[in-house]
């Protein structure tokens, strides 16, 4: 369950603003905007990534998957980073933003169309939630990258957040890409391995929490200011009583 916390973290040194925008996800349309040389290079990197992912989903048991993942995770992360860095060099920023956006839409559409049949409803929903959250993370990260530089006294904290964020976002990405590799190459995933992949997808929540901390560091919340005047009236009380009464009927299992 806590396997996500047990992996050695090979962390980057920069702050959140220095991390590349999140571009490692494959998109069917990207080839159209690339030069021939760049497209070839992308294809070669993608091929390395696919080989790694296919090895991961080819195993039969959770134990084998965990063992193999510990061998190849760092390589998949380096490959994803390489793809992202190359994209930022060869694709203009507005086009890249559009491609990243499209890639999320393609992923959501693929999961909606084929996910339940391939992985079951629970895993499909977990995967859709992961892609939805990655899209949100991408938007927040763009805001950070385009935002003002962080003050000197907050730089150390920003670096710490970036280190953890980098780990969790690539961890979530590794597991979601295992699912997409299974779809692309029509490979089955055993239920045991699928459970572990779904567990790995949970890392996206940590990644979101961390990138939000990066936002809060740059644009602090005004939440501690005094609220304006407010009169609690009978209607408020009725609504509150009604909510508490509803809870008596609430159908949640005992804690």
């Amino acid at each position: 369950m806590d396997s996500v916390l047990e992996i050695e973290r090979n962390r980057p040194q920069g702050g959140l603003g220095e991390l590349p925008t999140f571009v490692g996800l494959p998109t069917k349309n990207s080839a159209r905007v690339l030069s021939e040389e760049a497209a070839e290079l992308f294809k070669a990197i993608l091929s390395v990534l696919n080989d790694l992912l296919l090895r991961a989903i080819d195993v039969q048991t959770r134990e084998e998957f965990i063992a193999l993942r510990s061998q190849i995770f760092d390589d998949t992360r380096k490959t994803q980073k390489a793809m992202g860095s190359l994209a930022m060099v060869v694709i203009p920023k507005p086009t890249l933003d559009r491609l990243v956006w499209e890639s999320f839409s393609e992923m959501e559409a693929d999961l909606t169309e084929h996910g339940a049949k391939k992985f079951g409803v629970v895993a499909r929903d977990q995967a859709i939630f992961t892609v939805w959250t990655l899209r949100k993370i991408n938007r927040l990260l763009s805001r950070i990258v385009e935002g003002p530089p962080i003050s000197a006294e907050l730089k150390e904290r920003d670096k710490e957040i970036a280190k953890d964020f980098s780990f969790y976002v690539y961890w979530a990405q590794f597991h979601i890409e295992c699912l997409f590799a299974a779809m692309r190459f029509k490979k089955p995933i055993t239920p045991d391995v699928l459970d572990e992949i779904c567990d790995g997808l949970r890392a996206v929540v940590n990644a979101y929490g961390l990138v939000r901390q990066g936002i809060a560091l740059r644009w602090p919340s005004q939440d501690n200011e005094e609220p304006g005047t407010f009169e609690w009236d009978e209607e408020d009380q009725e609504l509150l009583d009604s909510s508490m009464a509803d809870m008596e009927e609430m159908e949640i299992e005992e804690y």
Binding site: I128, F129, S221, N224, D236, L240, I252, E253
Partner: peptide, 27 residues
């Protein structure tokens, strides 16, 4: 609920916990 709201009325907005971990899913 945000702290400003928590200071206002006689209510807070909250999310329940369960210790039954099999309930964990997407959201």
């Amino acid at each position: 609920s945000r702290n400003q709201i928590n200071r206002l009325g006689q209510h807070v907005v909250a999310v329940p916990f369960t210790s039954k971990l099999r309930h964990a899913c997407a959201h």
